[in-house]
Every structure is written in C-alpha cells, then in structure tokens.
Amino acid sequence: MRHHPNLPSPPPRDWTVLTLMLLLLVLVVASFAALPLKWRDFFTLDAVNGTIELLQGFAPPDLSIGFVTKTAWATVETLAMSALGTLLAVLAGLAFSLPASGRFGKAARGGTRSLLNVLRSIPELVWASILLIAAGLGPFGGTLALAAHTAGVLGRLFADSLENAAPLPEQSLRTNGASAMSAFFYATLPQTLPQMLSYTLYRWENNIRAAAILGVVGAGGLGQMLKYHLSLFQMQKAATVILAMLLLVALVDAISFAMRRALTR
C-alpha cells in the first residue's frame, strides 16, 4: 500500500516481544530435548501396578490415639516453625527494605539488594543443612532457615513496594515541617502496608509447606516424622502424617484467604 504524504509515518515495529517469545520457545524445545523423559516407561503396565501397590500400602491410615496425639504435637510444631520463621523474616525484611529502596543512597541500595539476592537464592533445605550444624537438630534450625530465605524474598518485595509508592504525600509532609521518620510512617507506609501484609500471608502459606519438608533434614515437625516412618516402610503411619500435612495446609490457606479478603474491603 502506498503511503499518503500527508499522513504521519507509522512507528517502527518493536521486535523485542517477538524476540523474547522466540527465545522462550527455543528454551522450552531445548529443555524437552535435553531431559531424558521416558513417557512410555511411565505409562507401562508394570509402572501402573507398582504405583497401585504402593498406594494400597498407605491404607488405612494409623488412627490409634497414641499416634494421632503424637502427630498432632508435630503439627503444632510445624505450624509454630512457619509462623515464627515468617515473623522473623518480616522484621528482617522491613529492616532491609529501607536501604534496599534507595533511602540511604545508591551504594546502600545496591549492597542491600545483593545481600537479599543471596538470602533468597539459597533454598530452605540448604539453609537448614547449614544452620542445623550450628543450632543442632530440631525446630530451631528449621525456623532460622525459613527466616533466612523468606527475609530475602520479603525484603525485595517490601523494597519494591516502597519504591513504587507515590512520593507526593511524603514530600508534602516534609515541606510542612514533618520529620523524615514521621513523614514515612504517616504517608508512605500506609500506602504499602496492605500490599506488604498480602506478601506476608502468601509467604506464610509457602513456609507451611517448606516447614513440613525441612523435617527431612532433621528440623523437626511433620517432615521428620514422615521421613522416619517412610524409611521404616511404615506406610500406614506415613499416611497419617501426610493427612496431617494436607489438613494443616488447607487450614492455613483458609485463614490466609479470609485475612486477605478482610484487607481488601
């Protein structure tokens, strides 16, 4: 089609999105080509029979009073680990978010964000393996592991929330003579607080699942019970522990959902 001389020229086409989509497609294809995925072996009759036989070993769960009571105490321990680990992470994340948001200069921002990257790039299981050496076996090391990883995640999210907050309310208070701390607590923090609470609840849900897994390396709770009974092939007892995990995750998800709905009203 011939371009009319009086009409503006069309903007040049941006190939960035198309290039990224092509690179993503190449990455997906390369991933399937590199991994030895044996789909046929997965759906063979022997694999199906073996899976059914394994699942039959879990039924019925061990519902004896003594074991259910023991599982209930381990459930409380797992819940306490996740709650305390999340609380410590929130406090550390708030402390890290101030320099990471650029309030103390570019050097402090870059250094703090590098530290947050290190904290969250190390998985909870690795943190637990390291901290259990220093703190010993039990829930204390698992709680610190959850706090260390989650502090890196929440610190970054909190810092981004502070950076994206509207600066005008805080600037107006500073112009009218308010101190920097007062302007922050009365103008910027109320803007970001609902988002920070939403991030905290979401990470608490994740930490429930992580706390149940950390017991595999000796951090206590339901995970330690599950590893113990599976290693002894006590499948019915393991089934009870798995059911407790599912109930705990469902309970925390429901509480978190209700709290998020209350925050958005």
Score class of each variant (00 low, 15 high):
residue 83 A to N: 01
residue 56 Q to T: 09
residue 144 L to S: 11
residue 155 G to Y: 14
residue 162 L to E: 11
residue 69 T to H: 07
residue 91 L to E: 09
residue 194 P to Y: 02
residue 79 L to N: 04
residue 151 A to C: 08
residue 181 M to V: 15
residue 123 P to H: 05
residue 57 G to H: 00
residue 243 L to A: 10
residue 72 A to Q: 02
residue 34 A to Q: 13
residue 25 L to H: 03
residue 93 G to W: 13
residue 225 M to T: 03
residue 190 P to Q: 06
residue 203 R to W: 05
residue 200 T to V: 09
residue 120 R to M: 09
residue 108 A to W: 06
residue 176 N to C: 12
residue 220 G to N: 00
residue 139 P to F: 12
residue 169 P to Y: 11
residue 213 I to P: 04
residue 104 F to K: 08
residue 99 P to S: 11
residue 75 T to Y: 02
residue 189 L to H: 08
residue 127 W to V: 05
residue 151 A to E: 14
residue 78 T to Y: 03
residue 66 G to A: 09
residue 159 A to F: 11
residue 131 L to C: 08
residue 156 R to D: 11
residue 240 T to K: 02
residue 229 H to V: 09
residue 121 S to V: 06
residue 52 I to C: 04
residue 29 V to H: 00
residue 213 I to W: 04
residue 260 R to G: 02
residue 53 E to K: 14
residue 133 I to M: 11
residue 247 L to Y: 00
residue 49 N to Q: 14
residue 50 G to K: 03
residue 131 L to M: 06
residue 217 V to W: 00
residue 70 K to D: 09
residue 243 L to Y: 02
residue 148 A to D: 04
residue 123 P to W: 07
residue 163 E to Y: 03
residue 253 D to R: 02
residue 72 A to R: 04
residue 219 A to W: 14
residue 101 S to R: 08
residue 200 T to A: 13
residue 212 A to M: 09
residue 190 P to V: 06
residue 163 E to F: 04
residue 263 L to C: 01
residue 223 G to S: 01
residue 20 L to P: 00
residue 9 S to N: 04
residue 195 Q to A: 11
residue 39 W to L: 15
residue 134 A to N: 04
residue 33 A to H: 09
residue 92 A to V: 15
residue 219 A to H: 13
residue 80 A to E: 12
residue 32 F to A: 14
residue 108 A to Q: 07
residue 22 L to T: 10
residue 60 P to W: 05
residue 248 L to S: 02
residue 149 H to S: 08
residue 251 L to W: 03
residue 119 L to P: 07
residue 159 A to D: 11
residue 93 G to L: 05
residue 69 T to K: 13
residue 190 P to R: 04
residue 8 P to A: 10
residue 160 D to N: 14
residue 148 A to T: 08
residue 10 P to Y: 05
residue 86 T to G: 08
residue 149 H to L: 13
residue 8 P to E: 03
residue 132 L to D: 09
residue 254 A to F: 08
residue 2 R to W: 05
residue 228 Y to M: 12
residue 61 P to F: 02
residue 240 T to V: 03
